[in-house]
Amino acid sequence: MDFLKVEAVHHTYFTKTSAVTALSDVSLKVEEGEFVSFLGPSGCGKTTLLSIIAGLFEPTEGTVTLEGRRVETAENEIGYMLQQDYLFPWKTIEENILLGLKIGVSLTPDKKAYALQLLQEMGLKGVESQFPKQLSGGMRQRVALVRTLATEPKLLMLDEPFSALDYQTKLKLEDLVSGTLKSFGKTAILVTHDIGEAISMSDRVFLFSARPGQLHKTFVIPKELRDETPFNARNHEAYPAIFQTIWKELESLEPAGER
């Protein structure tokens, strides 16, 4: 059985004056334990697709199933990490990371200990009683990751989680996130517009074209790159070739005369 299955998803946003089709006939499958990326120009409906997979709203047409069950009915099985950390500024770090468990009424001492241990593994010891404001951007994004992982989701979705960080922090965090998810064997979907990030972190890259958002092409990342950490993958000899392939494909998507 397929782990995550997106079938013939269409989505149209309606406003008083227009109907905008964000996604048109998108079908894809993700295997358990796989790390995939959604890559594409802005306006290709990546975030819409992510929200639909997360079960935040239903698509106009089509279905999304996780282990054979529709995602609208799934609870706490999907973790979602946003562009910015969105830690609640009036809650301490500990209250923030336990939020998902509290909402799901599953805050047991075991799970609490697990969340606090995750925090330590992320290199954030002794910040439990601090407030988000007191932490740096990279630290806050790590806390947000702990908050997402604390509910032990089966599928993790990362919506450009590194785009608001400075380059150095971003590279370090890529390694940390990739390593953490691999060691837990989590399935993850990363939305990004950074080709390098998509190549270095994922097993497969789905390339989307814009207006309307459609799945254009799928790239399988060579095994030798998959086994490396994201930082080393960027310096691997197989990296430039796949980068060029994806780059050319992206270029071909841009209609001539748009720049």
């Binding site: 935040l56 999907i78 979602y80 910015q84 969105y86 609640f88 998902g100 909402i103």
Partner: peptide, 21 residues
């Protein structure tokens, strides 16, 4: 900020929880 609401929704929060948290 609707993104705070989004965070809670991905945890499966109901409307009362969104209001309270």
């Amino acid at each position: 900020d609707p993104n705070y609401i989004k965070v809670l929704q991905t945890f499966g929060a109901n409307r009362f929880q969104i209001f309270w948290e």
